[in-house]
Design a protein around this nucleic acid. Sequence first.
DNA 1: TTCGGTGCAAAATCTTTGCATCAAG
DNA 2: CTTGATGCAAAGATTTTGCACCGAA
Lengths: 130, 130
Amino acid sequence: MKYSRQRESILQYLSATKCHPTAETVYQNIQAEYPNISLGTVYRNLTLLTELGKIKKITGVGCSDRFDGNISPHYHFICRECGAVLDLEMDELNHIDLLAAHNFDGRIDGHIAHFYGICPECINKNTKKQ
Amino acid sequence: MKYSRQRESILQYLSATKCHPTAETVYQNIQAEYPNISLGTVYRNLTLLTELGKIKKITGVGCSDRFDGNISPHYHFICRECGAVLDLEMDELNHIDLLAAHNFDGRIDGHIAHFYGICPECINKNTKKQ
DNA sequence: TTCGGTGCAAAATCTTTGCATCAAG
DNA sequence: CTTGATGCAAAGATTTTGCACCGAA
């Protein structure tokens, strides 16, 4: 695979940020360094980097997919109020694959899980309102 | 809310089927009874029924959302090979919300989880091939 | 020089919506 | 009748793709 400055920039941006940006957000941020980059290139590289395992794609959060530079196994929290996506510090739930496989004839080799609730910031905001 | 034959038909179809159809598939099946129904009406009713809690929307499986007439709490299995979505017979994983909340400052009140692997049918197919 | 990557724009896919008409209450 | 629901088609939103040109090797 050939090196590309744009791809490198996308990977660096994702590795540096703790938020979980959409393709559009990645695009806007990379534009600071490469004003001529196109959204198509961003999508192509996000797909490529996901296939290479260098980033993770998070689906099922809002309408657009999100991307994560943190490829260590971890779970995500989604705030029902502001939509924020946060990393959770918790061990892998390996045992739940076994629970799922218990009454199932197929083979189970993994899972995705997202947790929902109210983020610290929104709890704080709500307290002030009252 | 006014009664509508179309909405009733959609609800009945979803309650009767064990597969987890997309809006497009619902549309095609309802067309058997109501040839003039429009995709817009299907989407409007699927959204409405989801808000009313009469059906469930399953996101994060393939490109389009899927819908489920089974509103009892349960988990889904997704076949990596054929994309089939199957119901899993397992207890609710209430304890994982506590695990998630352990090192987290916000409030956690729920989760979604999908399990991945190879479905019985595909395992069977693969065995025959060899 | 070669060939993969890019920028651009068009297209594809999925979903929502405006509006005139229809039908439930 | 009145008002919400429908059918239709257009528009929105997100993502993919064809193609000519650029730039890494």
